[in-house]
Design a protein around this nucleic acid. Sequence first.
DNA 1: ATCTCATAAATATATAATATAAATAGGCTA
DNA 2: TAGCCTATTTATATTATATATTTATGAGAT
Lengths: 236, 236
Amino acid sequence: MLDTGRNLTHQLTHQLGAAIVQGQYAIDKPFPTEAELSLQFNISRSVTREAVKMLTAKGLIASRPRQGIRVMPSAHWNMFDADVLSWTLNARPSLELLREFTQLRMAIEPEAAVLAAENNKDSAKMKAIGDALARMKRADEGHDDPLSADIEFHCAILAAGNNRFFFQLREFIQVALRVSIASTNQLKGVLTADYDDHKRIYDAICAGDQEGASKAVKTLLQEVMQLINVSLVKPT
Amino acid sequence: MLDTGRNLTHQLTHQLGAAIVQGQYAIDKPFPTEAELSLQFNISRSVTREAVKMLTAKGLIASRPRQGIRVMPSAHWNMFDADVLSWTLNARPSLELLREFTQLRMAIEPEAAVLAAENNKDSAKMKAIGDALARMKRADEGHDDPLSADIEFHCAILAAGNNRFFFQLREFIQVALRVSIASTNQLKGVLTADYDDHKRIYDAICAGDQEGASKAVKTLLQEVMQLINVSLVKPT
DNA sequence: ATCTCATAAATATATAATATAAATAGGCTA
DNA sequence: TAGCCTATTTATATTATATATTTATGAGAT
């Protein structure tokens, strides 16, 4: 136990973070004090405090003298933090959460494609999208990992828009796609996303066709959403 | 110095976080070591380490033995963390960043309105939107704060959609709207946003008119964007 | 009885001293 | 030149102790 990660603080952070997100410490039930955690994990007080501070920074807990540490309501958790997201997806790999994630994608990605199309003069960024598309083709022929190629394609679009907020969402999308698909491999269809659908997006962006790019992304995501909804109604 | 915030660790975290985001520590220039920071702020090693861990959790820095602490490239900063966002906006209250933020809103908020319209049976959440709208009317007559009412309205829509990710964005939108408008009060027009524009959004959501709700939000945000673009081209 | 104020207890906060481990740079050897 | 020591730097980790903050308790006054 406690031996994944770079150092003790990180290990404890991940262990506690995962446990909290998993609901192991209910919001009303008492959370262990610093002293108890140190004892329980056989670890020094400083390490415990540092881990507590990291989880505090991510919005999972808060601590005050005399009151101890308490778990914050999940509304306060920073879901856009890659760690928190990955703990959440691993703890409860529910189709419901996957649906919510896809709804977010349906907001973000069409607009990201619009921004990319607006910025289609930046040849380096266009090339990055094209390269990812090429990887997808190679993956179709069995010479590359289809999931990685797919993720890279969507991230390249997010990066192409000259917008720091969209750029930042790459890691988020990356983690969510990888984790959620890994844990719900029943949705195999998402993996083998059509090359042609993606090529349509790429072509529209390169042509500077904002409306077309947006539409093409929406079409793709609606297919994903439909798959999820079918699975939600009639779970296998 | 160092007396805002709950405890020493938080104070140091905010001070260093703001300084980093402000570019006070360039990414290539050496960052002070733990020992130097402790000396410089006349503070114990533990407090320094805890602050470093909090900033690490937010993606601003990373630390390794022998190498010390280094500032991460800004692409790695967790911009969706309320602290990081507020430091950034306060450090560089640029119209450019405001434009990027509004582009993000144009992705998020129309879809949020769609989800809210989809979920229009939840009377408590509909009431929350209605209450915020009422506050806006009162603000128009000078009996309430127009900015707070405006923010509350948009956050109520984000909360109405039964989607954890959109819900999480409330704090983000809240901070960004408050800070950016506070520092760019030249855009007074954003403050006195038309009551009628907002009422149209509310009505469409209540009626379950997804398309109409989306359109109404887009119209509102396009006005904001136009104002920003005008200011960007011809700064006052 | 109820209110107020002092006291006590619990817990995080903060400091300090010391030891260990990891990573790098530089020099040494082959 | 390549590979291997060795020294050094720096974060990492432990431990002991002291302080501050908040809540609960109880005594005394009204």
